[in-house]
Design a protein around this nucleic acid. Structure first.
Length: 461
RNA sequence: GGCGGCGUGGCCGAGUGGUUAGGCAGGGGCCUGCAAAGCCCCGUACUUGGGUUCGAAUCCCAACGCCGCCUCCA
């Protein structure tokens, strides 16, 4: 049984699926108007980990995440650069997928672009107009939130308190300050699509409701996104579905934010300016480790220091992989489920699994996995054959979270191979001066030298 | 202004009425020709002030600080 915190109910509860054995998940994706930032990296990793975990637990997961490729910010940037909007959207969508690939985030089952879903959006707005839940103003079509009885469910506070303190929306012609744009009429030069109610483009909230229902069907299981999307974005999606009496998401899950020491992220401070910047300077697996070491709903401190910390921790995991020559995994299980585990190992698996099943408690699970690392090493030091089972299990469970351990040897060019064999020869004849000289030589070329029972081993520093 | 969340050892970060989180960094030891990797030991933490309790980092109240949302930001 998988349990998750449901934002709508403000409690951890069992993830009850519409169709047994199948999980349908929608994650609000990026608006492609700029390079992705660290927060994008976190949310994609968090929901990727959830997706992988559900899969690992035997569920078939349909995972939809959109690309918003029509938006005011895209228009603004295109104007500034004097290029077509599609140019901006395509460019930053490419950057997005490159970053996702680097992060090892699985491609969504479907990644719809908003611009490919315009006609169903128009149809939805027409239906809302027909039911008089929507109304036209001079600049667009608006949704009348008063028509949804439980509007504000995800606001998590009384609506009048929202209105009282809401930042001023200069316009007074909306029926309620909370009413939102379903459609924006095109101004000269702006991208436009035809519609019975006037040429223009869809509002953000309409995209996601149409694409999620369109690709996952009514009453899909889980809708995810950053905490900032809870209100109004997710609430407004829900409102549109409610207005049409279409069952919407059964569960809502939201991830916490990335912090950076209260400091503004800037290159002059040495901090990461973007996700792409971080990935250029770091092993992407370190970011995944950093992310799973905190709870998905907690704020996460991301800085050069914490990423470096995660890189060193990753080094410990890779060392385990080297010691046991573990294969690289990405979610598949390498452990034979029918093999005889020791009682201790079986308990370890049960406990780790239980932690992940309980609101995706990755930090506690990772702590346990590190204990597993120590256990494997200790047993190996003692020459116990059980050590390998432990190492394999640790590898499998990290793999289930999308973190693959790298123990395979780096490829060596000929002169390195030569230096290594010379050093082995020197050590064999106990010529420590020569052996040390050769180690220095190798280190000078950027290799870390480790002696083992199989002789000198080198890896990239 | 309203609402919500958070404040844990040098750093990151779980936990949660009495029992070891974990990682990184630091110190000591073992192993090693010396290293690296690994193993063992160590700091004895919980914003502040009250309160409840046999007992609170964990519950309650208040203060301070930080973060988020309040119309398009993950």
């Amino acid at each position: 049984m998988i349990r998750l915190f449901d934002t709508a109910r403000q409690e951890v509860r069992e993830l009850t699926l519409r169709d047994e054995g199948h999980a349908s998940i929608y994650v609000c994706g990026p608006t492609v108007y700029d390079v992705p930032h660290l927060g994008h990296g976190r949310f994609t990793l968090v929901w990727d980990v959830l997706r992988r975990w559900l899969h690992f637990r035997g569920l078939e997961v349909r995972f939809v995440s959109n690309i918003t490729d029509v938006d005011d910010k895209i228009i603004q940037r295109a104007e500034r650069e004097g290029v077509p909007e599609s140019d901006v959207a395509t460019r930053f969508e490419d950057v997005w997928w490159t970053a996702m690939t680097q992060l090892g985030v699985l491609r969504p089952s479907v990644a719809p672009r908003a611009t490919q879903w315009i006609s169903p959006m128009v149809e939805l707005i027409e239906e809302l107009l027909r039911r008089e839940v929507a109304y036209a103003l001079v600049d667009g079509i608006y949704f009348d939130v008063s028509r949804v009885p439980d509007y504000g469910l995800l606001a998590l506070q009384p609506l009048d308190s929202l209105r009282a303190g809401a930042r001023v929306d200069a316009r007074r012609d909306k029926r309620s300050a909370l009413d939102f744009a379903l459609w924006k009429f095109a101004k000269p030069g702006e991208p436009r699509w035809p519609a019975s109610f006037g040429e223009g483009r869809p509002g953000w909230h309409t995209e996601c409701v149409v694409m999620s229902l369109g690709l996952l069907g009514e009453g899909f299981d889980l809708h995810c996104g950053g905490f900032d999307l809870t209100f109004p974005h997710h609430e407004n999606e829900r409102a549109q579905a409610e207005a049409l009496h279409k069952p919407f998401a059964r569960h809502w899950a939201h991830n916490g934010f990335v912090m950076s020491g209260g400091e503004k992220m800037s290159k002059s401070l040495g901090n990461f300016t973007s996700l792409s910047d971080l990935l250029d300077r770091t092993d992407a697996r370190a970011y995944r480790l950093l992310v799973v070491r905190s709870h998905y709903r907690s704020p996460l401190e991301v800085s050069v220091e914490t990423v470096a910390d995660a890189e060193r921790a990753l080094g410990r995991l890779d060392a385990l992989a080297r010691r046991f020559s573990l294969p690289r995994l990405a979610g598949e299980s390498l452990v034979d489920p029918v093999s005889e585990w020791s009682e201790e190992l079986a308990t370890f698996v049960t406990e780790t699994t239980a932690l992940l099943d309980d609101d995706l408690n990755t930090p506690a699970a990772v702590a346990k996995l590190f204990e597993g690392v120590s256990r494997a090493n200790t047993l190996a030091d003692q020459g116990d054959d059980g050590a390998r089972e432990w190492a394999l299990m640790v590898n499998t469970l990290f793999g289930a979270l999308g973190l693959s351990l790298h123990g395979d040897a780096d490829s060596l060019d000929e002169d390195v191979v030569e230096l290594v064999s010379q050093r082995d020869a020197a050590r064999a004849r106990r010529d420590w001066v020569e052996a040390d000289r050769l180690r220095k030589e190798l280190e000078g070329r950027g290799w870390i030298v480790e002696d083992s029972s199989q002789g000198t081993r080198v890896r990239r520093g």
